[in-house]
Design a protein around this nucleic acid. Structure first.
Lengths: 226, 226
DNA sequence: ACCTGAACACCGTTCAAGT
DNA sequence: ACCTGAACACCGTTCAAGT
């Protein structure tokens, strides 16, 4: 009950809680002030600006990532685990992709920690030089893109309209695209959660196979007389 | 000079022009009204809401995509061309990734046309059933994620601070991550445009190799007695 | 049918003033 | 040092009123 003094940590925690609960649009200086039982401007002293606050909130979420530092695990397993961990973080905080898009200046220590981990695992796999960056960026891009798609489709809060009804609604627009209609129909009859997971795992497997192919090709060149 | 009557098309075109020139934040109802030499609310009659306008603007940009419908080209080339075309669109309209994130209700005809094309090419490759969706989603996710990363880093309009200066600034924060420091240093000495392209092409190649591996594995199962 | 002007309920941010 | 209250310049949207 006693309204204690504010500090940077409390402001960030409150912001993350508000973002998780009600999304990016709900985070306003006045709403946040109300949650903290303070004035709307109280946060300015602690975090400088709203842009900065969102960046700090994003980094706070990155800090929760559990990164496997066991070298004995195969690179493929480690990279898969890293990708899954990242994806879980993004889908668990649906405001994150939008936040990054709207407030690009997010380069906190937790993000760097993750970037470093990604590079370390890629190095373990056998990549060197710029290939380290490309391999890491490929995994990161895919996960972001996947999460981006997930958080898009999950917006219809109105559960009264089923996905089947929604399909019926778009049907006339799909007249020119029979294949698209076929796939929409199939997908709308499947469990969205399963669809999302299977889609992600397919992409992840595809990516890892592609990286493996790159490493094999590397070895061919390194040992031409094998 | 003569302020002609507004219509849906003119409103959308003006919105795209404003977005391209000054970004997502610059698009306000009042700014748009000024550009159109009309009141701030004139657009409401034509496009309903700002959310809807952004969706229409996004779809208008998707409509510009040139999709190769030549069946004689190999699926690998067609899929690569499709991915590159999509990426060029995203990087050419830097507000697009943010727009999708902020206004998810973007399901216009041009987007459907693209989705259908992506599926058609995947079918040509040899994918069937849900694998069509997964393969398409994998490519789409990667391109989105890549474009998302591109548009992030291109925000520093202030060209007075070089990337090298920026590196010097972050250096103390990278003390714990020698590998990350090494890569930051190498990247900051390279041409950003080349870096972006090479990174994308590496990822695209990785993806296509992975899809090829999936198709090979499919064939193994289909013809066990080969 | 198409558009305007005024109004409403919000924003992020600043800044003098308090403690 | 930390926080408040009032103020400024903006938003998206609605709606009666005009033509």
């Amino acid at each position: 009950m006693a309204t204690e003094r504010l500090d940077r940590g409390r402001v960030i925690d409150a912001a993350v809680a508000l973002l998780d609960a009600e999304g990016l649009d709900a985070l306003s200086t006045r709403r946040l002030g109300a949650v903290l039982q303070a004035s709307a401007n109280a946060m300015y002293w602690h975090v400088g600006s709203k842009d900065n606050l969102v960046g700090l909130a994003a980094d706070a979420v990155f800090a929760e990532l559990e990164l496997n530092t066991d070298d004995n695990t195969s690179w493929r397993e480690r990279l898969a685990a890293t990708a899954r961990e990242l994806r879980t973080m993004f889908t668990g905080h649906s405001w994150l992709t939008s936040a990054f898009a709207a407030y690009p200046n997010t380069q906190g220590p937790a993000l760097r920690r993750f970037q470093n981990h990604l590079l370390v695992v890629c190095r373990q796999a056998g990549f060197e030089g710029f290939d380290l960056d490309w391999a890491g960026a490929t995994v990161f891009s895919f996960v972001i893109g996947d999460a981006w798609g997930q958080t898009q489709s999950s917006t219809p809060d109105d559960s009264s309209i089923t996905t089947v009804d929604l399909l019926e609604q778009v049907k006339p627009d799909l007249a020119d695209y029979p294949l698209l209609l076929e796939r929409y129909t199939a997908l709308s009859n499947a469990d969205p959660a399963v669809v999302n997971n299977t889609s992600f795992e397919f992409g992840l497997c595809t990516l890892l196979d592609g990286l493996q192919a790159h490493l094999d090709h590397q070895d061919d060149k390194a040992q031409p007389d094998a």
